[in-house]
């Protein structure tokens, strides 16, 4: 088992490298470099530099070196010092800006994942066992709708509905009066009042997808001979279904972390922009629009790494759940 985990971690390295390269490409994509941006800003405030000064600054920032050296320096900064570069828009190191936002992103993603599981498991089982019943048709319809409505449209709609019919604004994570306060019980209650909107919005697509997958897998498993064996033993029907086919159809549930997580993080990015949540999304968009590339690239890098870690966890859980994977 330990060997398996080590092997998985080892396999992650090239993917991680790929993700960092893509992030770096995004940082480098806009025309001009970091210094051009700084100089432009300086020029705005009437500070000018001589060509000589500019060349020295270039050297200082390492911008005169070839691209791969800049990449290595960037990565080395992150790995050795946790230095993600400098946000020129905020005039602060990226690392100062990023962690709080990433924490909120992670928490909401995790809550959404729990929501996805909690909802799709019972509905999926019900749908598969009672195929073609009215409940199954409703679940299927809900599934299709959930998949078809893009996150941000769902968020906008929820916003509109709650504003129009409940007179309540659902943006943000806290009501305005709590934002600046320290964490307290009323503030926590207020958080719960707000957090369900992003969780539902982000989780819907994943829930719909998982219901469909679980229904399809379980339908397959229900026809397997081992289910008949279990019935022939004389087990009651619900025990048969829960102990055998459901146990095996659970695999995609665990492996779902691997692909639901990127989806959730994707979803939260855009949903957060619509709902104005203090997560990475709005900051990322702002950084991108302002071409504050180190900040933007770091967010993209961290989001990629986050999904990779999620995939690793799902692989490990899967191996725990299914002995066949463990022994191969």
């Amino acid at each position: 088992m330990l060997g398996y985990i080590i092997q998985r971690v080892f396999l992650m390295v090239p993917t991680m490298l790929g993700i960092s390269i893509i992030s770096f490409i995004i940082i480098q994509l806009p025309p001009g470099d970091y210094l051009t941006s700084v100089l432009a800003a300086m020029a705005d405030s009437d500070v000018t530099f001589t060509a000589d000064q500019i060349a020295r600054m270039r050297e200082n920032y390492g911008l005169d070196e070839p691209m791969y050296m800049q990449y290595i320096q960037w990565i080395w900064g992150i790995v050795s010092r946790g230095d993600f570069g400098y946000s020129f828009e905020w005039n602060r190191p990226v690392s100062e800006l990023i962690w709080e936002r990433m924490g909120a992103t992670l928490s909401i993603s995790f809550l959404s994942l729990l929501f996805v599981w909690a909802v799709s498991l019972p509905i999926g089982i019900y749908s598969a066992v009672r195929r073609h019943s009215i409940g199954d048709h409703i679940a299927t319809l809900f599934g299709f709708l959930g998949l078809a409505i893009p996150n941000f449209i769902l968020a906008l709609t929820l916003m509109y509905v709650s504003f129009r019919y409940f007179g309540q604004s659902v943006g943000g994570l806290y009501s305005p009066e709590f934002v600046e306060q320290a964490m307290s019980w009323p503030k926590f209650v207020d958080l719960l009042k707000h957090v369900w909107v992003p969780v539902v919005v982000i989780g819907t697509a994943g829930t719909a997808a998982l219901i469909r997958i679980l229904r399809a897998n379980l339908t397959d498993e229900l026809n397997k001979p081992y289910v008949l064996t279990a019935r022939a033993k004389g087990l009651p029907e619900h025990t048969v279904i829960l102990r055998y086919p459901v146990r095996i159809a659970l695999n995609p549930f665990v492996s779902a972390i691997g692909w639901v997580l990127p989806q959730l993080i994707s979803g939260i990015t855009i949903t957060a922009i619509v709902l104005n949540l203090p997560t990475a999304g709005p900051l990322l968009l702002r950084a991108l629009v302002a071409q504050d590339m180190y900040l933007a690239g770091s967010f993209i890098l961290l989001m990629g790494v986050l999904t990779l870690v999620g995939m690793l966890l799902s692989d490990i859980l899967l191996a725990l759940l299914d002995p066949r994977i463990r022994f191969h």
Binding site: S23, P262, I270, I300
Partner: peptide, 20 residues
């Protein structure tokens, strides 16, 4: 590997990155 990397990335942030 490339396929793996791209499918591991959350798509919307990447789209944003390129589009911006």
């Amino acid at each position: 590997r490339l396929i793996e990397v791209i499918s591991a990335m959350p798509t919307i942030p990447l789209w944003l990155g390129f589009a911006a």
